[in-house]
Amino acid sequence: MLQVEKLVAGYGKVEVLHALDFKVEQGQLVTLIGSNGAGKTTTMRALSGMLVPTSGSIRLRDKEIAGLPSHAVAKIGLAHSPEGRRVFASLSVDENLQLGAFARVTGARPKGELQRDFDRVYTLFPRLAERRKQYAGTLSGGEQQMLAMGRALMLNPEILLLDEPSMGLAPRLVEEVFKTIRELRAAGVTMLLVEQFAAAALEVADYAYVMENGHIRHQGPASQLKTDPAVKAAYLGGGH
């Protein structure tokens, strides 16, 4: 589904990602974990076209998307729920979701059953349904996170990128976010998940990559990495 080869990217002259190789299979939930500053967000940004990679290849199905602008990548079917939520603060909840479906409404992507997908998001996040007309900027942090995820889902994407969906949330809401991710996985949505709660991410994921300083250090089925002594010591010990 998504195949990344020798991906190099950075900011200005600073190289952050050093020739990454990884892939996400159809229907899989793959997680990317690693400590602060490892380059997880940079990877996500390079995938969705927010950042132009220096070199390397990114293939979505059989299309090369490396270096395409983000609006073109979205039209090919990659949805990115970015770090820090980035909801449209002065637009209503409803309008944020409509814009999530922008490529479908304007004919750049198959329209499909729009209404059904609105209903699906509102069923997944009943709290949003109660706040349809409210400005997104007035939502709580947790609600904004739900909106960011819902908005990305409205693309009806081939693959969904989630960058720290639990960031800054109270423990009970973190639970809720992971429950939603599990539901999406059960529904067959292909996902790439970046998480600071490494243990929880390994719990829901099929496959995992561990990043360190812009390199992939470990990889394997999530159930296996969970018990790997090296991974345990570095990322799962104590903490949260």
């Binding site: 927010m50 979205a74 909801v87 449209f88 309008e95 999530g100 409404v105 304007t106």
Partner: peptide, 21 residues
């Protein structure tokens, strides 16, 4: 929808790009 895309771009240009705008 195009007008909403205008407002979204005004709000957060990068995020608007991610919507396919």
């Amino acid at each position: 929808i195009w007008g909403k895309a205008v407002r979204a771009t005004a709000n957060d240009r990068d995020a608007a790009g991610l919507m396919g705008i």
